[in-house]
Amino acid sequence: MNTTATRSATRPRRQNRAELGVSLLLALVGAAVVIDAARLNVPYSQSDPVGPRTVPFIVGGLLLVCAVTLTVNVLRGGRGEAEEGEDVDLSAPTEWRVVLPLLGAFLANILLIDVLGWVISGAMLFWGSAWALGSRHPVRDAGISVALALVTFYGFYVGLGILLPAGVLEGVL
């Protein structure tokens, strides 16, 4: 009980303001759905009286209503409960120093996978993620990364018939 209680006492403001961002997101998605649906043609058709617009309008409407209700709820002091887990320590603040490098590793892989191929970019992804998450054994990590990338590359090719991109190692692998 105590951890949750102290947290809500010390950071209600920040949590509130941040949670309004969720309302904003819902409103934006809702608006996008409605606007997108509005530009659809509705051909008259006996076989499809509902048409392609009805469901998007309902979904968009639901999202907009949710956005408004959530805003009211948050302003009146409602709070979303962050999810707990075995490895989640909610008493600590968000560790952006872990999350941002992790996102960086992910993003680098998206940009590099088609150029460098899976073996190199995948190994970099694992190595970078492990480092971001606090592993401090660069050499051991590199070994594991390369091994994982190679095993999955050949495993997918031999076992599943899926040829992952070899990239710059084309011909070597």
Binding site: L102, F126, S129, A130, L133, G134, L164
Partner: peptide, 17 residues
């Protein structure tokens, strides 16, 4: 670190494949 790096690795691999 290995556990969660592994999740990211296999998630990427799965979605990409």
């Amino acid at each position: 670190p290995y556990l969660y790096a592994g999740i990211v690795f296999f998630a990427t691999l799965g979605a990409y494949s």
